[in-house]
Amino acid sequence: MREAEGATTTEPGPGAILGEQRRLTNLAYRMLGSLADAEDVVQETYARWYALPRREREAIVSPGGWLTTVASRICLNLLGSARVRRERYVGEWIPEPLPDSREWTDPASGPGTDPADRITLDESVSMAFLVVLEAMTPAERVAFVLHDVFRYPFAEVAAIVGRTPAACRQLATSARRRIRAGRAPAAPTGAQAGVVREFKRAWEAKDLKSLMAVLDPEATVIADGGGLVGALPHPLTGRERIAAAHLDSDRFAPGITLLECTVNGGPGLVAQVDGVTVTVFAFRIAEGLITHIWAVRNPEKLRPWTQVGPIGSGLRPSGSGAQQ
């Protein structure tokens, strides 16, 4: 990443360096599953860049490569400590959900005002994908994200992870097996949205039969309150139990409004009380049925969703429903 001895170069301008921000945020979010942590990683990466003496910065041939290496190594360290932190986490831990910036950015304040606007939404940020990434070792996750998602050669991955290229290849292979095992057959987004819409309608109408009709017999709900708000302490499995719990939840959280929206690139729901987002729901759908529901209730993970109702012209509010 540095010039050969005797070569001269000039330091890249601030625009070129800051132009890497979106890519670094995309990279760090996929590695960590947290927008807040990804932002911290990018900030620390830039702090380290500007802490270098100017002469050292000028000697770096590929500033983008240097920034990527530093950000990836910070993520690798954080992933190791995150496992310890999550052992102490209250209840289930779910990756931080992302809105679709096209729905959530305030037109009056211009594009890019929402931090989530810096995340490119595709399959690699779907909730189902991120949940599988959570099951990987830190080295597996970093190697897989760098190589399979961002197309870095194994030689560069090896320098970042501190393993040989052959070892990194094996890490990525192991990660791919996990992804294949957890991947549902892809369905058109429109078809998925239709299933989520039917789920929403049945929930609001308190129609037990219709609600069960869109749930897989072995469907699972996982809720994340982080110990800050009420949530299921353990996964709830079985469509009968899930349907009954949703129809009964009005007793615990009356006056909920449900909104259709995009969550991590796929059809989802937002639950609001008096215009305040209290839960974001992501779904996994296979063969026309909901197999998994992830309900994020931890308010610390709902920062990008705070201005949903008044701004999101792409959202469709409905009547009162209920929420997990």
Rank of each mutant, 00 (worst) to 15 (best):
G265L: 12
L247T: 00
K209E: 15
A322T: 13
K301W: 15
V125Y: 12
E20N: 10
A202M: 03
Q272S: 07
P153H: 08
A187S: 15
P95E: 02
M127W: 03
V195S: 06
S249C: 09
G15D: 14
A223G: 09
T237W: 06
A59P: 10
R163K: 02
H292V: 04
L146K: 03
P95L: 02
Q21F: 10
C261W: 07
G319R: 04
F199M: 07
W49A: 00
T279G: 10
E123F: 10
D250V: 04
T113G: 02
E156Y: 07
E240T: 08
V229N: 04
E20I: 00
A286I: 03
P233W: 03
L215K: 08
V142A: 03
R88E: 14
R73Q: 14
Q307D: 14
G255I: 15
V308M: 14
V221L: 13
V61A: 15
L236S: 05
L258N: 02
P304D: 10
G33E: 12
L133F: 14
M136H: 02
V278W: 11
A181T: 13
D40Q: 03
Q43D: 13
A191L: 10
E103D: 05
P53N: 07
P310G: 02
A184L: 15
A167V: 06
G227M: 13
V273Q: 07
E87N: 01
P153T: 07
D248M: 06
V161G: 03
T257C: 03
T68D: 05
L232D: 10
L215N: 07
V229E: 01
I160R: 00
R86Q: 14
L24M: 13
K209C: 11
R88W: 14
S101N: 00
D106Q: 03
F129G: 01
G112T: 01
W66I: 06
A243M: 12
T45N: 01
R88G: 03
V278Q: 08
Q323G: 13
A205E: 14
I17A: 08
W93R: 04
T137E: 13
G15P: 04
R23G: 11
G15V: 01
I242P: 11
A253P: 01
I222G: 00
T220Y: 07
L98Q: 01
F144C: 02
F129A: 06
K209R: 15
V263D: 09
A158V: 04
V273P: 00
I290R: 09
Y89E: 11
P63N: 06
P185I: 03
T9S: 14
R2W: 10
P95Q: 02
L259P: 02
